[in-house]
Measured scan of single mutants.
Amino acid sequence: MFKRLMMVALLVIAPLSAATAADQTNPYKLMDEAAQKTFDRLKNEQPQIRANPDYLRTIVDQELLPYVQVKYAGALVLGQYYKSATPAQREAYFAAFREYLKQAYGQALAMYHGQTYQIAPEQPLGDKTIVPIRVTIIDPNGRPPVRLDFQWRKNSQTGNWQAYDMIAEGVSMITTKQNEWGTLLRTKGIDGLTAQLKSISQQKITLEEKK
């Protein structure tokens, strides 16, 4: 169930391209415009997507990853294993993690069937560096609404905000991946996880038929 919630949630996290980005210092504006741009692209490019579902990787690479804190999220997933990894191991892992996100997020976007969304009203940021933004996803086919909290983090150097995690039903996506990959990290280390991520990233994206 959580895996499905995570995939549905990713439908609204794909941010804007650099040329049309919203105010990078306001995570609420980023979330709002990102959702609108993403849904528009999914709707307008269905012919290309249906002809070649792996085209979704391109959308992810162009529109999402430049505005997601990939390395920060990847380091959180590694936890204690990050500090013990060599620079070469980290570089290989982050490259594999990025390719994994292209496949995983692309597969999530393949679930698009006309969903709509509501974003919580903007709250004062103050001096906060981590801000959760509640998004409610509404399914046109009558499924119950899904309420999610996207975690946005302020870059201490640039002042810009980027998304790095999502919490559904009190469970963090980062925590879920830590639990899912924990045994592999304990037995085969970061190299074993890197190899698995490379394998997963090679899987073809498949479209979910409308139910």
Rank of each mutant, 00 (worst) to 15 (best):
1 M>R: 04
1 M>H: 02
1 M>E: 00
1 M>P: 06
1 M>V: 02
2 F>Q: 02
3 K>W: 02
4 R>L: 02
5 L>E: 01
8 V>T: 02
11 L>F: 00
11 L>M: 11
11 L>S: 01
13 I>N: 15
13 I>M: 00
15 P>C: 14
16 L>W: 03
16 L>R: 08
16 L>M: 03
17 S>G: 10
17 S>E: 03
17 S>C: 07
18 A>I: 00
19 A>H: 04
19 A>F: 01
19 A>V: 10
20 T>K: 15
21 A>L: 05
24 Q>E: 06
25 T>Q: 00
27 P>G: 04
27 P>Q: 09
28 Y>G: 12
28 Y>M: 03
29 K>L: 02
30 L>I: 02
30 L>E: 03
31 M>F: 02
31 M>R: 03
32 D>L: 07
32 D>N: 15
34 A>L: 13
35 A>Y: 13
35 A>L: 11
35 A>T: 05
35 A>W: 12
35 A>M: 13
36 Q>V: 12
37 K>A: 06
38 T>K: 08
38 T>H: 13
39 F>L: 04
39 F>S: 01
39 F>H: 04
40 D>M: 15
41 R>M: 05
42 L>S: 07
43 K>C: 00
44 N>W: 11
45 E>C: 14
45 E>R: 07
47 P>C: 03
47 P>Q: 02
48 Q>Y: 15
48 Q>A: 06
49 I>C: 01
49 I>F: 07
50 R>Q: 05
50 R>T: 02
50 R>W: 04
51 A>N: 07
52 N>Y: 07
53 P>D: 00
53 P>Y: 01
53 P>C: 01
54 D>K: 09
54 D>M: 03
54 D>Q: 15
56 L>F: 08
56 L>I: 14
56 L>V: 11
56 L>H: 11
57 R>D: 00
57 R>L: 05
60 V>N: 13
60 V>F: 09
61 D>E: 06
61 D>R: 01
63 E>K: 15
64 L>M: 12
65 L>R: 06
65 L>K: 15
66 P>C: 07
66 P>A: 13
67 Y>G: 03
67 Y>P: 05
67 Y>H: 01
68 V>K: 02
68 V>M: 02
71 K>Y: 15
72 Y>F: 09
73 A>H: 03
73 A>G: 12
74 G>H: 13
75 A>W: 02
75 A>P: 09
75 A>K: 05
75 A>Y: 13
76 L>V: 06
76 L>R: 06
77 V>D: 05
77 V>C: 11
78 L>R: 04
78 L>K: 07
79 G>K: 02
79 G>Y: 05
80 Q>T: 07
80 Q>H: 04
80 Q>S: 04
81 Y>S: 02
82 Y>F: 07
82 Y>C: 05
82 Y>W: 01
82 Y>L: 02
83 K>D: 07
83 K>P: 02
85 A>T: 00
85 A>C: 00
85 A>E: 10
87 P>F: 15
88 A>G: 05
89 Q>R: 13
90 R>H: 05
90 R>L: 05
90 R>N: 14
91 E>W: 14
92 A>H: 05
92 A>S: 01
94 F>G: 10
94 F>Q: 08
94 F>S: 01
95 A>F: 00
96 A>M: 01
97 F>E: 08
97 F>N: 00
98 R>Y: 15
98 R>S: 11
99 E>Y: 00
100 Y>D: 07
100 Y>K: 14
101 L>K: 06
101 L>S: 11
103 Q>H: 01
105 Y>W: 01
105 Y>K: 02
105 Y>S: 00
106 G>A: 00
109 L>D: 00
110 A>M: 02
110 A>C: 10
111 M>F: 11
112 Y>H: 12
113 H>T: 09
113 H>G: 09
113 H>L: 13
114 G>Y: 11
114 G>V: 12
114 G>T: 11
116 T>P: 10
116 T>D: 03
117 Y>L: 10
117 Y>I: 12
118 Q>T: 07
119 I>M: 13
119 I>W: 10
120 A>G: 10
120 A>N: 01
120 A>C: 09
120 A>M: 05
123 Q>K: 11
125 L>W: 11
126 G>S: 14
127 D>W: 00
128 K>V: 03
130 I>D: 07
130 I>W: 06
132 P>K: 05
132 P>C: 00
132 P>D: 15
134 R>C: 14
134 R>H: 14
134 R>D: 13
134 R>Y: 01
135 V>I: 11
136 T>Y: 12
137 I>Q: 00
138 I>P: 06
138 I>Q: 14
138 I>W: 10
138 I>K: 13
139 D>C: 12
141 N>E: 13
143 R>Y: 13
144 P>S: 08
145 P>R: 10
145 P>L: 07
145 P>C: 14
146 V>H: 10
146 V>Q: 07
149 D>R: 05
150 F>I: 12
150 F>L: 12
150 F>R: 09
151 Q>R: 08
152 W>L: 09
153 R>N: 03
154 K>N: 13
154 K>S: 09
155 N>K: 12
155 N>V: 03
156 S>N: 02
156 S>E: 02
158 T>A: 06
158 T>K: 04
158 T>L: 10
158 T>G: 09
159 G>K: 13
159 G>D: 03
160 N>R: 08
161 W>D: 05
163 A>H: 02
163 A>K: 06
164 Y>N: 06
164 Y>V: 11
164 Y>K: 12
165 D>I: 03
166 M>Q: 09
166 M>E: 06
167 I>C: 13
167 I>A: 10
168 A>C: 12
168 A>D: 14
168 A>M: 03
169 E>C: 02
169 E>H: 14
169 E>T: 05
170 G>L: 15
170 G>S: 08
171 V>W: 07
172 S>W: 05
173 M>G: 04
173 M>K: 03
174 I>H: 02
175 T>C: 13
175 T>G: 03
176 T>C: 06
176 T>H: 11
177 K>P: 10
177 K>F: 15
180 E>S: 10
181 W>E: 15
181 W>F: 15
182 G>S: 08
182 G>T: 10
182 G>H: 15
182 G>Q: 10
183 T>E: 08
183 T>D: 14
183 T>G: 10
184 L>I: 12
184 L>V: 08
184 L>S: 08
185 L>T: 08
185 L>W: 09
186 R>H: 11
188 K>T: 13
188 K>Q: 14
189 G>T: 10
193 L>V: 07
193 L>Q: 06
194 T>R: 12
194 T>S: 10
194 T>H: 05
195 A>G: 09
195 A>K: 01
197 L>H: 04
197 L>P: 04
198 K>D: 12
198 K>Q: 00
199 S>G: 05
200 I>T: 08
201 S>R: 06
201 S>K: 08
202 Q>K: 07
203 Q>W: 05
203 Q>V: 02
203 Q>C: 06
204 K>E: 08
204 K>D: 12
204 K>W: 11
204 K>G: 11
206 T>G: 07
208 E>G: 06
209 E>N: 08
210 K>Y: 12
211 K>G: 11
211 K>F: 00
